[in-house]
Amino acid sequence: MSLLQIEDLHAGYGAADIVHGVDLTVDEGEVVVLLGANGAGKTTTMRAISGLIARHGSLRFDGTDISRAAPDEIVRLGLAQVPQGRGTIADLTVEENLRAGAHVRRDKQGIAEDITRWFDTYPRLAERRKQQAGLLSGGEQQMLAISRAMMSRPRLLLCDEPSLGLSPKLTQEMFASLSRINHEMRMAILLVEQNATLALGIADRGYLIEVGHVGASRSAADLAGDDAIRAAYLGY
């Protein structure tokens, strides 16, 4: 059984569904990428999985039905999301952002250890621990967003466009970092990304979503080798 199993997901804002009929699965320890053009429904799918918007269809996380669960319940089950635009809690300091990330946990010792761990992973954040998070650069905010989501000790990390607004160099660092999290912690990651080359570089499998509909799962290598996808999303 897959960690995350979605069948026939419909979701949208208000009257019109943007996503109609998405099926996808993510297994333990796997990196899965969701590719697609602007407006295809990638972010809508992510927001529907986390319970931020109305949705229907079959959504199961580790066997538990989450199709009616509220966002906070879904986090408690072990599914964390780095939202598009990074979701920085601008008025809190960097360290407070991480503490807020551990909201669902009660183990003080473990929380303190994890904060140290993420400060070790991203030393730039440690340097700015007392600074207001809203003042960080885009790259630093993205590091903070990933660390904050990881502070809940999730079993599946959803990442919505981590490269948004970052320089190519920073984007590469970000993907290297996600890949390390996947390898070192065996963290399952579902990634939405416009930068298909880099995303497929760290992914095991991928899906292509087109106007609210998702195709069959394919291996990352297969997707990267597909001429149509190369032309549309890889740009060479």
Binding site: L52, A70, H103, A149, S152
Partner: peptide, 9 residues
């Protein structure tokens, strides 16, 4: 929204 994604009610 971030608060909700972190499990805050």
């Amino acid at each position: 929204e971030s608060a909700a994604l972190l499990g805050i009610r």
